[in-house]
Amino acid sequence: MVTNAITTGSERAIIENTLDRNREALIATVRELSDVDARRRLVASLTTPISLIKHAAAAERIWFQRFWAGLDEGECDGYSERDEGTFAVAADESLADVIVEFERASRRSRVIAAGFDLDDTKHNPREGTVSMRWTLLAMIEEFARHAGHGDILREQIDQTAPL
């Protein structure tokens, strides 16, 4: 499903729509990849197409479930530590599984975010005092950047695929 761009209306509607469109753009980079191609390591880092989606799901949990909702790690619906483990994909996880995980985390983020005004703030040990607006914009930035990474990886994979 492609979310249509909202270009007028409330600030909140535009921000949330842009975030949803970036979530979709990230998922689009892995659509129709095989599980083997999704796990291909084409750069020196842990970045693979599937790990980008896994990392995005963790980012959703870190910012919305842990930070804004104040949940403990065990109350989250998956990995929520702020480290390289966010890129770790278990051998038995398929690309479809990881997409579902990201979509589930995104749905939960929407519910949590809806409980706060854009100007509501909390103190973050790394970032200082942040607002919900800042968090939503940071997620837009995060997912747009990773969609770009995904586009490049996908281009490499498609270019090397047999004709």
Rank of each mutant, 00 (worst) to 15 (best):
T86H: 07
E75L: 04
Q65T: 10
T86Q: 15
L71C: 08
W68F: 09
L46C: 11
D97A: 00
T3P: 08
F64G: 04
M139N: 05
A144D: 09
A57Q: 01
G78E: 00
E93N: 01
H55S: 09
T3H: 10
R40S: 11
S51A: 14
A28M: 09
D120P: 03
G74T: 06
A91R: 10
L163W: 10
A105S: 09
V2W: 14
T3F: 02
A114G: 14
F64I: 05
F143I: 08
P49Q: 05
S109W: 04
H149M: 07
R110Y: 11
V89K: 02
E75Q: 13
D20F: 08
W134L: 04
T129G: 07
F67D: 02
R108K: 12
A96D: 00
K122I: 11
Q159M: 15
S34Q: 11
E141V: 10
E81D: 14
N22R: 13
A69L: 09
T121E: 03
A147N: 03
E101S: 03
E84C: 11
P125Y: 04
A28G: 13
R23A: 07
V36P: 08
L163A: 13
A57N: 01
L42N: 15
Q156G: 05
T135K: 02
H146K: 08
V111N: 10
E73R: 12
L95D: 00
M1E: 04
I15L: 12
I50R: 00
A144P: 06
I157F: 05
R39I: 13
A69T: 12
L42P: 14
S94H: 01
E24H: 11
W63C: 01
V130M: 05
A96T: 03
L153P: 04
V130A: 05
F143Y: 15
I27A: 00
A91S: 14
D92V: 05
I50S: 00
V111R: 14
L46V: 10
D35M: 05
A114Y: 07
A144C: 10
R145M: 03
R21G: 02
A57C: 08
G9K: 12
W68Q: 06
K54P: 00
A113P: 10
L136W: 01
A38W: 01
A25Y: 04
L71V: 07
T7W: 03
I53F: 01
E24Y: 08
N124S: 13
S10L: 05
R104K: 12
T47M: 14
V89M: 02
S34A: 06
S109K: 09
A25P: 08
A88K: 12
E127R: 15
G148S: 03
M1D: 05
A138G: 06
H146Q: 07
S106T: 12
S45T: 15
F143V: 07
E16R: 13
D77L: 03
V111H: 10
A114P: 07
E103Q: 00
E60K: 01
L95I: 03
V98E: 00
A88Y: 11
R61K: 07
D37V: 05
A56C: 13
